[in-house]
Simulated assay, not measured.
Amino acid sequence: MEAGNDTQISEFLLLGLSKEAELKPLIFGLFLSMYLITVFGNLLIILAVSSDSHLHTPMYFFLSNLSFVDICFTSTTIPKMLVNIQTQSKGITYEGCITQMYFFMLFVVLDTFLLTVMAYDRLVAICYPLHYPVTMSPVLCALLLLVSWIMSALNSLLQSLMLLWLSFCTDLEIPHFFCEIKQVVQLACSDTILNDTVMCFSAVLLGGGSLAGILYSYCKIVSSICGISSAQGKYKAFSTCASHLSIVSLFYCTSLGVYLSSAATHSSHSSATASVIYTVLTPMLNPFIYSLRNKEIKKALKRFFGMAAAKGLITDLNK
């Protein structure tokens, strides 16, 4: 295959997490289990929020959207990986790779935006409780969600279109279990300085900006909590944002750890293995963090399953 913009690239090869054939059934079972748990757990959160009128608040509105994004986030990578293991194939088409990168970037950036918006929601609820119903109106919530989607989509579209300008050589092996943009750009024969600049700028502006917004929100929240006189009041205020803080810590610590470790070791395989933490493990743990630490979610799930069981019983009696 000759290098050049006129070269028709048929497919890339995803090397996956391990070259050992005997480990592939174990990897398949493990990732299938984690994927099913992720989808089922996040669907339960969405069902609980949508079926219970007590949870029709800004906090749970953003939580249900975060659960939806987490389902989409894992669905962009894991199903293709499972199919490749099952069919003993490593290939992914050029168009499929670009599409996968687009949606992966879309949902990972959207994840960071939603976490930032949720931090702002907690800031208003704790620091300005009297203004909360007016400030976090349904119109503002919908607008924040829409802006997050638009900015994420534009960023993904820009970086995906820039990939189309690159030419590739004969080495089309990606040392990852999905088409990760950094790994794909490194395979290019043409100059990638513009792509690298845009990736770096995007990471600093969107990722760093979101993190700065979250840190600012929690600095204000901590300052406000410290001003509460009673210990019970402090505990109640902190408990409303404990689950969100846990998810933020898990997402940012793992994702930053992946890129810092890969930059230090320069090992693509170790980077691919570490990526599992924030691409698969974090979305899987999110529903557990919220359901185990949130009494309202637990009550909503009990009511939902109670209603479902009652409807089933009535249907059986009518038969």
Rank of each mutant, 00 (worst) to 15 (best):
G209K: 03
P175K: 05
Y216C: 07
S255Y: 03
S229E: 14
L166V: 07
S202E: 12
D191T: 00
S268I: 02
F238W: 13
K234V: 01
S239W: 02
I174S: 00
G208A: 13
Q183V: 02
S255L: 12
S202I: 06
L161H: 07
G207A: 15
G207C: 14
L245K: 06
F178H: 12
M199P: 00
L211S: 05
S167I: 11
S223W: 03
V258N: 07
K236R: 09
A188N: 07
A242E: 14
K220N: 08
M199E: 10
S246Q: 15
S261F: 10
C200Y: 06
A242S: 14
D171R: 10
I225T: 02
S160C: 13
L215F: 00
H269V: 09
A231L: 13
L205V: 08
H266I: 01
G213V: 03
C189Y: 04
G257V: 10
G207Y: 06
S243L: 06
V204M: 11
C226H: 14
A188G: 04
L260H: 04
S190C: 05
D171Y: 08
A264R: 09
S261E: 15
C226Q: 13
H269G: 00
C189A: 13
S246T: 09
Y218Q: 05
V185K: 05
F177P: 06
S243A: 15
S255F: 07
L161V: 09
S210N: 15
T240S: 14
M199K: 11
F201T: 14
S243M: 13
T265F: 03
Q186V: 01
S230I: 01
L215D: 05
L205A: 15
L166I: 12
L245S: 14
V204K: 06
S261R: 11
I228C: 04
L260V: 04
I214N: 01
L256K: 11
